[in-house]
C-alpha cells in the first residue's frame, strides 16, 4: 500500500472506530472532552521528580482502552511518529541534572534521568488521552461538544472543514502520485524536477475540489455554520463515569497510588 493510501486508510479507519456502537462511544462528547482536558491538566501538573505519583495516572488510559475495546498495538502503531518526538523531550536532562536522588540495586539514579522519564511519560499520557478522545468520539461530536461550551462557531466550523479537506488533499495527492508513478516505471519516489509542477497541480486540483464541495454545501443551505446532530439520548451511567473519574484522577494526583497500594503488602 502506498504511503498516501496508508494515510487515507488510517484516518478513515480511526473515523470508523470513533463511530462504533460501544458504550464509551455513546457517552456525551462534553464529558469525554472535559475528562481529557482535566486528565491532561492533572498529568502536566506533576513535579519533575514525581515519577511514582505520575505512574498512577495510567489508570485512565488503561480503563478507556478496556471499555472501548481498543487495541494497544494499533494505538502505538498510529502514534509511531509522535511518540519518538515526545521521548526526545528532556533527553538532555541527564546531562544537566547529575545529582543522585535514588538508588536501584546499588546504581545511583540522577535527577536528570528521573525528570527525563517523567517528561516522557507525561507526553505519552497526554498523547494517549488525545488519541482515546478521537478514537471514541467522532469529529462531529467533538465539535458539538465544543459548541456546547460556546467555542465560537467560526472556529468549530474551521475544525470540521479542515478535517474534511484533509481527505480531499490526500486523495488528490494520491491521484497525482499514482499518475506520475505509472509514467515513471522503476523510479523510486518523485524526481526533484517534477516537484514544482506536481505541487502546483496539487494546489489547483485541491482548490477545484474544495470549491465543488463548498458549492455542494451552499446548495444545501449552508450559511457558515455546521449544524451537528443534537443529542437527545442519555447514556446509562455516563454521569457516574464522569464523577467517578473526576474523583479517581484527583485521588491519583494527590496520593501516589502505587506507593499506597504497595504499603499494604509491606
Amino acid at each position: 500500500m502506498s504511503k498516501f493510501n496508508q494515510a487515507i486508510y488510517e484516518i478513515q479507519n480511526l473515523d470508523t472506530i470513533s463511530k462504533e456502537d460501544k458504550w464509551v462511544n455513546h457517552i456525551h462528547p462534553l464529558i469525554k472532552l472535559f475528562l481529557t482536558v482535566y486528565y491532561i491538566g492533572l498529568v502536566v501538573s506533576f513535579q519533575k521528580y514525581d515519577l511514582e505519583g505520575l505512574c498512577g495516572m495510567c489508570i485512565y488510559p488503561i480503563f478507556v482502552f478496556i471499555i472501548g475495546e481498543l487495541s494497544w498495538k494499533e494505538a502505538i502503531y498510529r502514534l509511531r511518529i509522535v511518540l519518538p518526538l515526545v521521548c526526545i523531550v528532556g533527553i538532555l536532562n541527564p546531562f544537566f541534572d547529575t545529582n543522585s536522588i535514588a538508588e536501584i540495586g546499588g546504581i545511583a539514579i540522577s535527577g536528570g534521568v528521573v525528570s527525563m522519564v517523567t517528561l516522557m511519560i507525561k507526553g505519552i499520557f497526554c498523547i494517549l488521552a488525545g488519541y482515546l478522545l478521537i478514537a471514541t468520539t467522532s469529529i462531529e461530536e467533538i465539535c458539538y461538544g465544543l459548541r456546547k461550551i460556546h467555542i465560537p462557531k467560526i472556529m468549530v466550523t474551521q475544525i470540521l472543514l479542515i478535517y474534511r479537506y484533509i481527505f480531499l488533499l490526500l486523495w488528490e495527492t494520491k491521484r497525482i502520485t499514482q499518475a506520475y508513478a505509472l509514467r515513471a516505471p522503476g523510479q523510486k519516489g518523485i524526481h526533484i524536477k517534477a516537484w514544482g509542477p506536481l505541487v502546483g497541480q496539487l494546489l489547483l486540483r485541491s482548490m477545484d475540489r474544495a470549491q465543488e464541495v463548498y458549492e455542494s454545501m451552499c446548495i444545501r443551505g449552508f450559511q457558515g455554520e455546521f449544524f451537528i446532530r443534537k443529542r437527545n439520548e442519555k447514556v446509562k451511567g455516563e454521569f457516574i463515569y464522569f464523577i467517578a473519574f473526576l474523583i479517581i484522577l484527583l485521588i491519583c494526583r494527590i496520593y501516589p497510588i502505587f506507593e499506597v497500594i504497595g504499603g499494604f503488602f509491606l
Binding site: D15, K19, S138, I139, E140, R164, W171, R209, E212, V213, E215, S216, M217, R220, G221, F222, Q223, F227, I228, R229
Partner: peptide, 23 residues
Amino acid sequence: FQDSEAQLFMTTVEEDVAFAPRN
C-alpha cells in the same frame, strides 16, 4: 453534481443526507 465525491462530504450517508434539513 456530476462527481458524487464532490457532493458527499460528510462521513456517513445518514449525516450527508441530514445536512440540508439541519441547515
